[in-house]
Design a protein around this nucleic acid. Structure first.
Lengths: 231, 231
DNA sequence: TAATCTCTATGATAATTATCATATTATGAT
DNA sequence: ATCATAATATGATAATTATCATAGAGATTA
């Protein structure tokens, strides 16, 4: 589980091409010596709420959920993060400890550099700081949009929305293995698990989708979209 | 209405003490020459969704709502911003145009500097960039917390939450003039206006609060808190 | 292989919330 | 002051969603 690989082939690293494009080769080398890659199994907890924030984490591959759970309360999934996303990009500069937990919902590889190093680079490199601001701003915007899109819909609209979200945003295919359980689905949209199951069954009966174990295939996308838009 | 005052007495300006503490006096002078202050009447729209983002805005006094409205849909109030908040801090670096609208819900003074100048300073001054990142991170965190706190509660809990939010966060007093209409209250918590009115009436009948026109006084705060916590 | 557990599934009922209808009270304009 | 309009208020009913009960399917362990 605790497999730390310190390979640093930054020439082809996504971190470089996507984010650190404005770093000089000396800065990049500096960063590389502080880089660590780690794999997480499906279901494994990556970060527990309350833990100290030490690293700046980049999701290289896989899929994670960012969530919150309190004693005696339903768990709430705030958002999902996919490759090229910076994990827990909000919170990271506002407090010393995480406000949310993160867990892998598929086998996941995370690349991290020390937060201290990132802070140093913000001080040193204005272009880097600006890129980071843009990324954070975009990520925040997306999360707020996602949550508001969902919150204004009711049951059927929410389920349709999430199905289309997986098809269009996460998997870019109308056929995919649903990476979350029905329970997690319910924690994502804030409705009861029974209603999630029931609605998926309805969509299946109405031949909007085909359910085959974990696999879901969207058949009548236009109709699903209409249900989503109608709310 | 369009009263633009270009006074720049930055020695006592909040912008300076709160945010620009890491700017040199030459940078501050540069900023001052680009600063504008403007007053907005209660109800006046400050920013319309879709408008080009030209300024970096600081809320000097008053209270504003950040909201979203789409044709044929209920308006949704995302959050309120109070003095010392940067207005629309998310979005600002992610796109060229606003994704949300902003309106004054009380008489409001906004101080703005050109976004270009702020960008320039991010490039030039690492400490400034880091301060800004922290502020954005904190503001985002607060908004996400607010929305999740609200979304996991049902009607009564939401109303109690918002009343306590006004008392503890906005006005820091158990007696205050409710700055939003019942309609806006409903847009803030995502429930129907009738249920907002009904629940406030219930709270009044149960003597948890005293309603006197616009004024609300919280009498049994412990009970209200319990309703809030219970959800 | 059986036993245990979790996840999925479905129906029935209860709780919650929205909608509709209709007053009443404020607010602003003339 | 008077009218018109918006905001607040309340009851009745309908729609939506949660909860409870129960069962089958699939996975895991002994």
């Amino acid at each position: 589980m605790e497999e730390i690989i310190n390979v640093c082939n930054c020439e082809i690293c996504l971190l470089r091409t996507l984010f650190f494009e404005h770093l000089g080769s000396d800065e990049l080398g500096d960063l590389c010596s502080n880089k660590a890659e780690r794999n997480y199994a499906k279901g494994e907890i990556i970060i527990k709420e309350g833990a100290e924030i030490k690293d700046f984490m980049y999701l290289k591959s896989g899929l994670v959920k960012i969530y919150k759970e309190e004693e005696g309360e339903e768990r709430q999934i705030i958002t999902l993060a996919q490759p090229h996303d910076f994990v827990c990009i909000f919170t990271i500069f506002s407090d010393t400890n995480y406000h949310y937990s993160i867990a892998a919902i598929e086998e996941t590889t995370i690349c991290s550099v020390s937060l201290e190093k990132v802070k140093q680079m913000i001080y040193q490199n204005g272009q880097f700081a600006f890129d980071l601001l843009q990324r954070i701003s975009k990520a925040t915007d997306q999360i707020i949009k996602l949550r508001f899109d969902i919150s204004k819909k009711q049951l059927h609209g929410r389920i349709a929305y999430v199905l289309l979200y997986f098809a269009d945003v996460i998997f870019k295919s109308n056929s995919f293995d649903l990476p979350i359980s029905r329970k997690e689905f319910s924690e994502f949209i804030g409705m009861s698990i029974e209603n999630v199951i029931r609605t998926l069954s309805e969509f299946r009966k109405d031949k909007l989708i085909i359910i085959n174990g974990k696999n879901i295939e969207i058949i009548k996308k236009d109709l699903l979209q209409r249900i989503c838009d109608a709310g």
